[in-house]
Simulated assay, not measured.
Amino acid sequence: MPDTPRPELPVRISVETDVDAETAATYYRLYVETFGHLATKAVARQLLHEDEFLEEMHDPRVSKYVAWDGDDVIGLTTLTKHLETVPWISPAYFEHHYPEQWARDAVYYLGVTLVAKSRRESHVFQAMIAACTELILRERAVCAWDMCFYNDEELGLGPAIRRMLDHHPELQVAPIDRQTYFAAVFSPPA
């Protein structure tokens, strides 16, 4: 008898403001497993140092959307409206460009979304993004994120996220900035 595909089980999402040290260490291992390879794919550092990551895990201003399969963590998304917790962005940019949302304290930054390798073909990523999207829609907010070229154009994550969010006609998704890295490489004349 042929195997029948196992139906996709619903993913449970919890929102945490702090996690204990052992859980934070588990999340960091999952984080490195997910993003470690980007060290040779992107010019800008894509991986927080362990102390930076753990600080974020314990910072109550950063919401941790945790995807669970039973008692196992299979995914993590970070989201904050305290933009000062994201050292590589300019809160002044968002205040200037989105003054109405800024005045209502409705500007968010999505820091990281990761899924355990064993669950990447499932709907974990979509479930975490959907949980964040519910908040953004409810608050009529702005949510920004960044993505390196490799994840965006090589892996196609940017277009995939856009397709997920296109199901919400009230959300307009578009790039808001780009930073291009250049190199001048010495090459002796032939």
Rank of each mutant, 00 (worst) to 15 (best):
R120Y: 10
V142I: 06
L135D: 07
T113H: 07
V112R: 11
R119F: 07
R120W: 04
L135A: 03
T133F: 05
T133S: 04
H123R: 09
R138M: 10
E121W: 09
K117P: 10
C132K: 09
K117R: 14
M147T: 15
A141D: 01
D146I: 07
V124H: 06
L114M: 06
C132H: 01
E134D: 14
R119A: 08
D146Q: 13
I129M: 07
C132F: 01
V142T: 05
S122C: 11
A131H: 10
I136M: 09
E134H: 06
Q126W: 05
R120N: 06
A127R: 15
T133P: 01
V124L: 13
R119D: 04
A141P: 03
H123G: 09
I129Y: 12
I136D: 13
A130F: 05
E139Y: 02
I136W: 10
R138L: 15
E139N: 00
R138P: 08
C132Q: 12
C148H: 04
I129Q: 11
T133G: 01
V112H: 10
E134R: 13
E134I: 03
L114E: 02
H123A: 11
K117V: 10
R119W: 04
D146Y: 05
S118F: 00
V142C: 02
K117W: 10
R140D: 10
L137W: 02
Q126I: 13
M147R: 09
I129P: 01
F125W: 08
A130S: 14
K117G: 15
C148P: 09
R140Y: 07
L137E: 13
V124E: 13
R119L: 02
M147G: 15
A127P: 13
R140C: 09
W145F: 13
I136C: 04
C132I: 03
V112E: 11
L135S: 03
A144F: 04
I129V: 14
A141M: 03
I136L: 14
E121R: 13
S118Y: 00
M128E: 11
E139G: 00
C132P: 00
T113Q: 04
R120A: 05
M147H: 07
R120S: 04
A144I: 04
A127F: 11
V142G: 02
S122E: 15
S122K: 08
S118M: 01
T133L: 04
A144P: 03
C143I: 08
R138W: 12
L114T: 05
R140F: 05
E121K: 12
W145T: 09
W145I: 00
M147D: 10
L137R: 15
V112A: 10
R119Y: 13
L135I: 08
C132M: 14
A116D: 15
A141R: 01
M128F: 08
M147L: 14
A130M: 02
A116T: 14
A116L: 08
A130W: 01
R120L: 05
R119M: 04
Q126L: 14
F125K: 08
S122R: 11
L135G: 03
R140S: 12
E139R: 00
T113M: 12
F125H: 13
W145R: 01
V142K: 02
L135W: 03
R119I: 00
V112T: 11
T113S: 14
C132G: 07
V112G: 11
D146W: 05
F125T: 02
L114N: 00
A141E: 00
E139L: 00
R120T: 06
M128K: 11
C143G: 05
